[in-house]
Simulated scan of single mutants.
Amino acid sequence: MRKNKNGFTLVELMVTITVASIILTIGIPSLVSVYENVRVNRNIEKINNILTFARNQAVSYGRTVNVCAYASATSCGTDWGKGIRIYVATGNKTLRVIDGFNNNDAISGPGTELTFSSEGLSPSNGTFIYCPSGKANASKSVTVSSSGLINYGTDNQACS
Rank of each mutant, 00 (worst) to 15 (best):
I28Y: 14
K5A: 11
K93M: 11
N151C: 01
I129H: 01
V142T: 00
G27A: 15
A158R: 11
R55S: 00
G148F: 03
A136L: 06
N92M: 07
T154Q: 10
G109Y: 00
T52D: 08
A69D: 06
S145M: 09
E36I: 02
N43C: 02
D155M: 05
L149P: 04
G148I: 01
S124L: 04
V15W: 03
S72F: 03
N48K: 07
I26R: 04
F116D: 05
K140Q: 15
K93D: 13
S133M: 12
E36Y: 09
V142K: 00
L24Q: 02
C76L: 05
L31G: 15
Y70C: 08
E113A: 12
P29S: 04
Y35L: 11
S133Y: 10
P29Q: 10
V19C: 06
I50G: 01
K135S: 11
V97S: 03
R85H: 01
A69G: 02
S160Q: 10
S139M: 03
A138F: 08
G77H: 09
P110V: 10
F53W: 02
S117I: 01
N37D: 13
L114V: 08
N156F: 03
V32N: 13
L149Y: 10
N41D: 12
V65Q: 01
I26Q: 06
N4W: 05
V32T: 14
S133D: 15
R42Y: 10
A73T: 14
A106F: 03
I23T: 14
V67A: 01
L149T: 13
Y70S: 08
C131E: 11
N156L: 04
F128C: 00
P110S: 15
S122G: 03
D155A: 11
K5W: 04
Y130R: 01
A89T: 13
C131I: 07
